[in-house]
Design a protein around this nucleic acid. Structure first.
Lengths: 355, 355
DNA sequence: CTGAAAGCGCTTACAG
DNA sequence: CTGAAAGCGCTTACAG
């Protein structure tokens, strides 16, 4: 109905400018008004130097008088550049992710691009179809925080030829795209070493997705550090399950079996929050009985008491690096894909005691 | 360089399918392969019934063989419908906002639309230019959480004719667009009444943006409730300022002047978090000395201790309603704009004592 | 420096 | 049910 209305309004009577008839002003109208050709209008619009000052002024006047705005869809289509960036990530509601969105939106919009955002919700089928849409909209580039099984989506991106940067979650064996993330293995090694130095006897890594590349790297880092330790250190991985109730009982069991003093390392702030709840319910006092550390840095870390120790992800640096890599690719950079790792910052607060 | 490369690859040699020559498969190629016209391919693609089963199969085979994917830019341009929704909000990093993004992305993508997201960062100039971009990309509809001074952007949207729904922050005197939000005045009235019933003698509303419509409505609600109260209730508004240090000293001053028992009502979870920090620094114990309540519901409300009392925003309901309104408008609904208000849920936890 | 023409990849009446 | 043609609103070589 809307469309029919528009179609009517448009049929051969461009001159009409009634309130009701939705004026659809194009470069043609501007050209006519300014007494130049559409090519010249286009040249003015795109800031090409080849237009005389006099005509430029005429064109700008016509644009103002007619209230013309460029149709970016048409422009994208003709110039084969959409100036749209696709962003696909598993979630929007974790600190790690919305901080990234915030930082990327800044980069992207300052470079005069738009952000088209989709969520995979950690489901690789959804991820595939969402990214397919992005590709079909001819985004100039894709920023991807991959799901658990990103093989198909990555094949799809490779086939599409869309410049792509993998962010935050490295994909092992993937050599077609740039990747930027924290070195999760080194970070977890550093965390574990620090716990050893503080005379902890056990570390439990609480994870949500055991098969996730990030998780595996963290486990590897934890084990490395425990092997090289002079003191004996028990390490364990706790699968959190999908519900709070499950987690609560698993945590309770795990705590019984573990040599003290022990630390729970929560792989994200969601789990850290579950853990604190669980501690409250179980009557476990931290850090007196068990310590706690989270592998990302929620905004509430300092207002819970005791304050939460965290590994702070370098979100700004990650987003800046990802954007730089992506723009280089969009500008035609054909050099071999790069794997960039950044350092996270370890911040100890009251939730881990010093012994 | 990228563009030149593509242009080369495309010049008249569609048949070539070398690895290097980026195949750009179009409906023309599909039509040729299937031995039908492009019109028929289009009809198949759009699920029109007017195509014989036999041809449909041929077309689908050709699509599969050639690895064809529709160019949604071209489709949008020709059909005058982009199936893209523009979303503009001030921030991405507050619970209120990222929950909304999450819920809206679900609605939007299930309806086979895409989300183009921009942030105004509470700056009306930025808001204006970002929304201009959205309009220029011919989004089919706009969801707007307005900034402080949204007049120009709303005029712009009205002029563009893009169906628009104002979300979360109602704009007074605005009658051109649908609006959906919590009735902030009623909600604050309810909060205040409840505090009166609990024998509180003073309420301080801590706000970030005194001129924001939401803030003014809340103040009005607070004052209404205080006037109707049988017991005397002191009400005050505390401007938080832009930095934590400023806030800390202002809060300290405010607390001295106020009759006890008193409650701080934080207008969002960010301020609630600042307040908790400030309490910790000032050695103020809540709720013993002062109570605390936040007007949105961060995920950390239950893990701080004492647990935070909140007014929970009906994010899911808001996003569902906004989406319903928007789709109706996009489908041509021309009925008078509606102003829909939803109820928020008041949840008392330990941060407000019962006296 | 400027204009006329072709074309980006689709959809949409309109004949047949 | 199907095809040929026009056109969405731009940009881009190419003449002049």
């Amino acid at each position: 109905m809307n469309v029919t209305k528009r179609a009517e309004a448009k049929s051969r009577n461009v001159a009409i400018e009634t309130e009701s008839a939705k004026k659809r002003v194009t470069v043609n109208d501007v050209a006519r008004r300014a007494g130049v050709s559409v090519g010249t209008v286009s040249n003015v619009l795109n800031g090409r130097t080849s237009v005389s000052e006099e005509r430029r002024v005429e064109v700008f006047n016509a644009i103002k008088e007619l209230g013309f705005t460029q149709n970016l869809l048409a422009k994208s289509m003709r110039s084969q550049r959409s100036r749209v960036i696709g962003l696909c990530m598993p979630f929007a509601t974790y600190s790690n992710y919305y901080s990234l969105v915030d930082a990327l939106e800044e980069r992207v919009s300052e470079a005069n691009y738009q952000l088209m955002q989709v969520l995979s919700r950690q489901d690789s089928d959804k991820e595939f179809s969402r990214v397919q849409q992005l590709v079909a909209y001819k985004v100039d580039g894709v920023l991807l925080v991959p799901s658990l099984r990103p093989k198909l989506v990555l094949d799809q991106l490779a086939a599409s030829g869309a410049p792509t940067v993998i962010v935050n979650r490295p994909v092992a064996e993937e050599r077609r795209f740039d990747q930027v993330s924290v070195d999760h293995r080194a970070a977890m090694r550093a965390v574990t070493r620090e716990l050893v130095a503080r005379r902890y006897r056990s570390v439990i890594l609480a994870v949500q997705y055991p098969t996730l590349s990030v998780t595996r790297q963290r486990i590897a880092g934890m084990i490395e550090a425990s092997k090289e330790a002079k003191r004996r250190l028990t390490t364990d991985v706790l699968e959190c399950g999908t519900g709070r109730a499950t987690f609560l009982s698993r945590l309770e069991t795990a705590l019984k079996a573990v040599p003290r003093p022990a630390t729970i390392v929560a792989s994200n702030s969601g789990i850290a929050s579950w853990t604190i709840s669980a501690f409250q319910k179980l009557g476990v006092r931290y850090p007196d009985e068990v310590s706690l550390l989270a592998l990302d840095d929620p905004e509430w870390a300092e207002i819970v008491s005791p304050a939460l120790s965290v590994l702070r992800q370098p979100t700004l640096e990650i987003s800046q690096t990802a954007w730089d890599l992506l723009t280089a690719r969009m500008d035609g950079d054909r050099s071999p894909p790069r794997l960039i790792t950044l350092d996270a910052e370890l911040i100890f607060r009251d939730s881990v005691s010093s012994h």
